[in-house]
């Protein structure tokens, strides 16, 4: 342990570290939701999937002593939740937003129920790569101890962005999202595409949960998520259904979230509730500045019920 404190330099470092540490679940959930919403469907229930992912990852990691098997289990569980949502919403007159909210209850309930025996045991953590060894400061070393899932999240961001733009799969997804009729004319079944897109979204959201329980904060209890899943779904709109935007929004959100504790640690102790609201205020301000009254949300899939 280094004996000297960083002082005010701790604040920007904490924001950087916070952006890296806190953003990962947001990145995964918002990428997953981007896939789902690009297909023209919205799954508001990813909070439930995230928590169920956190639970199943932790449980399987405890049982098998392998954190990666935990992540795999979470992915599969998340995909099942997505499939269920996609299947139910296939039927006419069923409201996808409402089903999402109901599935959130269901996912939370099931996760809490099945997770009871796993609150006490300690699961193995996901590995992290120490990228900060060049620095002699332990604070910098700690900030740059980067989890593999964060890096996977970044790679995934760019691959999904590329996929949406340049591949046939991306094209199908966009066509289905913009017009069911056009998709049918192309011989594509929109419901099947949406089913798969929702399943993929669920799997990614559950990885976000696995990050929470297996790395940071790295623990399973019923209060592990404080609405990250719901917020991440909202960030997708903020990011205009653009994967790189999701990544940027998540980093911003994570970094701003670190502001509150960091300021208190350097002695700015008044009004911490307001500092804690910084991520929300900042997001709202950016949202107001970048929106325009005259045009529809650019990038919004035409079939999406939320933005019609």
């Amino acid at each position: 342990m280094e004996e000297t404190a960083l002082g005010l330099w701790g604040v920007p470092l904490a924001i950087l570290a916070g952006a890296i540490r806190v953003s990962t679940p947001f990145i995964f959930v918002s990428l997953g939701e981007t896939l789902t919403e690009r297909s023209g469907r919205i799954n508001l229930g990813l909070e439930g999937t995230l928590v169920f992912g956190a639970m199943s990852a932790y449980a399987v990691a405890v049982l098998t002593q392998s954190a990666w098997l935990g992540v795999l289990a979470a992915m599969m569980a998340g995909a099942v939740f997505g499939l269920l949502h996609g299947f139910i919403c296939k039927f006419p007159k069923v409201n996808d937003i409402a089903i999402g909210i109901a599935m959130m209850q269901f996912g939370l309930g099931l996760a809490f129920f099945l997770g009871k025996p796993f609150i006490q045991p300690v699961a193995p953590k996901l590995p992290a790569i120490p990228l900060g060894n060049w620095s002699s400061l332990p604070q910098v070393q700690a900030a740059l101890t980067i989890n593999v899932l964060f890096i996977v999240g970044l790679i995934l961001t760019f691959s999904i962005a590329w996929m949406l733009k340049n591949t046939r799969v991306g094209l199908i997804l966009r066509v289905v999202g913009d017009s069911s009729d056009a998709a049918r004319a192309m011989g594509i079944n929109p419901n099947t595409v949406r089913l798969l897109a929702t399943a993929a979204g669920g799997a990614l959201a559950a990885i976000g949960g696995a990050y929470l329980s297996l790395f940071y904060p790295g623990s399973w209890n019923e209060r592990i998520s404080s609405g990250q899943g719901l917020m991440a779904v909202a960030l997708v709109i903020f990011a205009r259904w653009n994967p790189k935007g999701c990544m940027f929004a998540s980093l911003l959100f994570g970094g701003a979230g670190a502001l509150g504790p960091a300021l208190q640690s350097v002695g700015v102790t008044q009004g911490y509730y307001l500092f804690y609201a910084a991520p929300y205020v900042l997001t709202l301000i950016i949202l107001i500045m970048t929106s325009s009254p005259t045009t529809r949300l650019s990038g919004a899939p035409e079939e999406l019920s939320l933005t019609k």
């Binding site: 139910i88 039927f91 006419p92 007159k93 069923v94 409201n95 409402a98 089903i99 909210i101 109901a102 599935m103 959130m104 209850q105 269901f106 996912g107 939370l108 309930g109 099931l110 996760a111 809490f112 129920f113 009871k116 019923e222």
Partner: peptide, 19 residues
């Protein structure tokens, strides 16, 4: 948590039956 599962099941069912 059982009650949450109950609520979730009931609501999914009610919403599904809208079809």
């Amino acid at each position: 948590a059982t009650v949450l599962v109950l609520q979730g099941t009931l609501f999914i069912s009610v919403l599904f039956f809208e079809t």
